[in-house]
């Protein structure tokens, strides 16, 4: 319901604030609100680490763990197998050719395998690149364990140089039963200059 308004009436139970009271109350509340705004700016930057933590826990975005996994003693689960497909892409700005030497591999969870990728620098300069892995479907990403990978560090290639780069990995036997296929994709970027 809309208020009943009577601009002329004067009643005793409500009092008008004085100018000084008003100004003081105003600046007090204004300062509080500035703190709220500052808090949300802080929150924006806090979201960056939060986001990373969330992604690596859940495997959201297909982010894989970029630290070498320890060699696994778990038993190889020979009752089933998983097919891992490989794709490779070179991002704009990097003058390389880059492709996997084999497009897929089928292996048992727990079994260690090595796959080779080949990169060639087709420019006349020394170029440093960084490979960024990503796994689809996202749920599978945390179960892909890399023991050794060319993506752990920057890769430098001399003009015209060709390099064979190994990836040693296994699939964690804890991987959900309904995942029988996954794709591991590498994008090579020009390494950010420091």
């Amino acid at each position: 319901m809309e208020p009943v308004i009577d601009p002329k009436s004067d009643s005793n139970d409500v009092r008008r604030k004085t100018k000084a009271e008003q100004d003081k109350a105003n600046s007090k509340l204004a300062i509080k609100m500035i703190w709220v705004a500052a808090g949300s700016l802080l929150f924006a930057f806090a979201l960056v680490p939060l986001y990373d933590v969330l992604c690596s826990i859940t495997g959201l975005n297909g982010k894989t763990d970029n630290n070498a996994a320890t060699l696994n003693k778990a038993k190889v689960d020979e009752s089933r197998s998983v097919t891992v497909q490989f794709t490779a892409a070179v991002m704009p700005g990097l003058g390389w050719n880059f492709y996997p030497k084999q497009t897929s591999i089928t292996l048992h969870p727990g079994q260690i395998e090595t796959v080779l990728f080949e990169a060639k620098n087709i420019t006349s300069q020394i170029v440093t690149g960084q490979a960024i892995p990503s796994v689809t479907p996202g749920v599978a990403s945390v179960y892909l364990k890399k023991i050794e990978c060319f993506c752990f560090v920057n890769q430098s290639l001399k003009p015209g140089e060709t390099k064979i780069m190994p990836l040693r990995f296994f699939i964690d036997p804890a991987i959900p039963k309904d995942v029988s296929e996954m794709t591991l994709s590498y994008s090579f970027f020009e390494a950010a200059k420091k």
Partner: peptide, 25 residues
Amino acid sequence: IPVLAGAVTMLLTDRHFGTHFFNAA
């Protein structure tokens, strides 16, 4: 609005000051 301001500021530092908030490389 401060979250947007923060996000575009990160973009700016990615562009010019060598940070990698959004730069996959």
